[in-house]
Amino acid sequence: MSSEAIQRIQQATNYVDPQLWVVTAQHGTSRGGMIATFVTKASIVTDCPRFLVGIAKQHHTWGLIEASGALGLHLIPQNHLDWIVQLGGCSGRDNQGDKLEGLSVTTLATGSPILTEAVAGFDCRVESRLDTGDRTVYLLDVQDAVSTQEPQAALRFSDLIARMPAEESSRLAELYARDQEVDRRAIVEWRADYLEAQS
Rank of each mutant, 00 (worst) to 15 (best):
Glu4Arg: 10
Arg8Ser: 14
Arg8Ala: 15
Gln10Leu: 12
Gln10Arg: 14
Tyr15Arg: 13
Pro18Lys: 11
Leu20Gly: 03
Leu20Phe: 10
Trp21Arg: 04
Gly28Tyr: 15
Gly28Lys: 12
Thr29Ile: 13
Thr29Arg: 09
Thr29Phe: 14
Thr29Cys: 07
Ser30Tyr: 02
Ser30Ala: 06
Gly32Lys: 01
Gly32Phe: 01
Gly32Val: 00
Gly33Gln: 02
Ile35Arg: 03
Ala36Ser: 14
Thr37Phe: 09
Val39Glu: 00
Thr40Val: 15
Ser43Pro: 12
Thr46Phe: 07
Phe51Asp: 02
Leu52Phe: 05
Ile55Phe: 01
Ala56Trp: 03
Ile65Gly: 02
Ser68Gln: 07
Gly69Pro: 00
Gly69Cys: 08
Gly72Gln: 02
Leu75Gly: 02
Ile76Tyr: 01
Pro77Asp: 05
Asn79Ile: 10
His80Asn: 09
Leu81Val: 06
Asp82His: 11
Ile84Trp: 05
Ile84Ala: 03
Gln86Asn: 12
Gln86His: 11
Gly88Tyr: 04
Gly89Cys: 13
Gly92Ser: 07
Asn95Val: 14
Gln96Leu: 13
Gly97Phe: 04
Lys99Tyr: 02
Lys99Val: 08
Ser104Asp: 12
Ala109Val: 09
Ala109Cys: 11
Gly111Cys: 08
Gly111Val: 15
Pro113Glu: 01
Leu115Glu: 03
Glu117Leu: 08
Glu117Gly: 06
Ala118Val: 00
Val119Lys: 02
Val119Ile: 13
Ala120Gly: 11
Ala120Leu: 08
Gly121Trp: 01
Gly121Glu: 00
Phe122Ile: 14
Cys124Gly: 05
Glu127Pro: 11
Arg129Phe: 09
Asp131Ile: 13
Thr132Glu: 01
Gly133Phe: 03
Gly133His: 02
Ala145Ile: 08
Ser147Asp: 10
Ser147Leu: 13
Leu155Glu: 01
Arg156Gly: 05
Phe157Gly: 07
Ser158Tyr: 05
Ser158Val: 07
Ser158His: 09
Ser158Gln: 10
Asp159Gln: 08
Ile161Pro: 13
Arg163Val: 05
Pro165Thr: 09
Ala166Thr: 15
Ser169Met: 09
Arg171Gln: 15
Ala173Phe: 04
Val182Pro: 04
Val182Asn: 11
Asp183Phe: 14
Arg184Met: 13
Arg185Glu: 15
Val188Pro: 01
Trp190Ser: 06
Ala192Gly: 12
Tyr194Lys: 08
Leu195Gly: 03
Leu195Gln: 04
Ala197Trp: 06
Ala197Gly: 07
Ala197Phe: 09
